[in-house]
Computed example of a mutant assay.
Amino acid sequence: MVQIIDYKAYKKENGEEFFSLVVQGGVEAVISRETGRTYLTAKTARVSCTFNETTCQSLIGSSLPGKIVKVEVEPYEFTIEETGEMIQRNHRHEYMSDENAIIAENVNHEMVIE
């Protein structure tokens, strides 16, 4: 289950505005690489939508079935908002419905069918 926690506005090249919803997964315990101590976090992802701003605002606090998964992508540069540090990443977090997550976890992408 994920929760809608916010929304973001964007502009297309033609100036038209559109929105995405920011969803957050459940609390996870992770171990810091630097200190070795456990801390709590929650993954977030942005999901495109066709809603207007009023609808996006009204959806904050709603829950959706599904989860946020880590997806490998081509390397890209990312700025950490809190520190301004620029790092390189090769993954992103993406929302998946429960059904799609089950399929993704069970499909062997290296298997070739002839």
Rank of each mutant, 00 (worst) to 15 (best):
Ser62Thr: 02
Phe18Pro: 01
Tyr7Pro: 04
Met96Val: 02
Arg92Asp: 06
Glu53His: 01
Ala104Cys: 00
Leu21Ile: 10
Glu77Arg: 12
Thr44Tyr: 02
Thr44Lys: 09
Ser62Asp: 05
Ala104Gln: 08
Val22Met: 05
Ile113Thr: 09
Glu77Ser: 13
Glu72His: 11
Glu16Gly: 02
Thr83Pro: 12
Ile80Asp: 04
Thr83Arg: 11
Asn106Gly: 05
Met86Lys: 09
Ile113Ser: 04
Asn14Gly: 04
Ser20Val: 10
Gly15Lys: 08
Arg92Ile: 13
Val71Met: 14
Glu85Asn: 08
Arg37Phe: 08
Glu99Trp: 02
Asn52Gln: 00
Thr41Tyr: 10
Ile103Gln: 07
His91Thr: 06
Asn106Ser: 05
Asp98Ala: 08
His109Asn: 11
Val73Trp: 14
Ala9Ser: 13
Ala9Val: 14
Leu21Met: 09
Ile87Thr: 13
Glu110Leu: 04
Thr79Asn: 01
Val47Cys: 11
Glu34Val: 06
Glu74Ala: 12
Thr35Lys: 13
Asn106Gln: 07
Ile113Phe: 05
Asn106His: 05
Tyr76Ser: 15
Ser32Glu: 09
Gly66Tyr: 04
Val27Glu: 10
His91Lys: 13
Arg92Ala: 06
Arg46Leu: 07
Lys8Ser: 11
Val23Lys: 01
Thr55Ile: 14
Thr35Asn: 12
Arg46Asp: 06
Val27Lys: 11
Val107Gln: 02
Val112Pro: 01
Asn108Gly: 03
Asn108His: 06
Leu21Trp: 02
Glu105Tyr: 01
Glu16Ser: 10
Glu53Asn: 05
Ser48Leu: 10
Ala29Asp: 08
Glu72Ser: 12
Val2Pro: 02
Leu21Ser: 05
Asp98Leu: 10
His109Asp: 14
Tyr39Asn: 05
Ala104Leu: 04
Met1Gln: 00
Met111Asn: 06
Asn90Asp: 15
Lys70Leu: 00
Ile68Glu: 01
Glu85Ser: 07
Pro65Ser: 01
Ile5Pro: 03
Ile113Tyr: 08
Asn100Phe: 08
Val73Cys: 11
Glu105Trp: 02
Glu94Asn: 05
Gly36Ser: 05
Ala9Trp: 08
Val27Ile: 09
Tyr76Arg: 15
Lys67Ile: 07
Lys70Arg: 15
Ile103Cys: 04
Asn90Tyr: 12
Glu72Lys: 12
Lys43Val: 06
Ser20Phe: 06
Val71Gln: 14
Arg46Gln: 09
Val22Glu: 00
Gly84His: 05
Glu82Ser: 12
Cys49Arg: 00
Val107Gly: 00
Glu34Ile: 07
Ser58Met: 04
Ala42Leu: 10
Met111Lys: 08
Asn90Ala: 13
Leu59Arg: 01
Asn108Ala: 03
Arg37Lys: 15
Glu94Gly: 03
Cys56Ala: 09
Thr54Cys: 03
Gly15His: 04
Ile68His: 01
Thr35Met: 11
Gly26Val: 02
Asn14Val: 12
Phe51His: 07
Glu85Leu: 12
Lys67Ser: 12
Tyr10Asp: 10
Lys12Arg: 14
Gln57Lys: 15
Tyr76Lys: 12
Phe78Gln: 12
Asn108Lys: 04
Lys43Ala: 10
Leu64Phe: 02
Phe51Thr: 00
Thr55Asn: 02
Leu40Trp: 13
Asn52Ile: 04
Val22Phe: 04
Tyr10Pro: 11
Leu40Gln: 08
Arg46Ser: 14
Glu110Pro: 00
Val112Asp: 13
Glu82Arg: 15
Ile103Arg: 03
Ile31Glu: 11
Arg37Ala: 14
Asn14Leu: 11
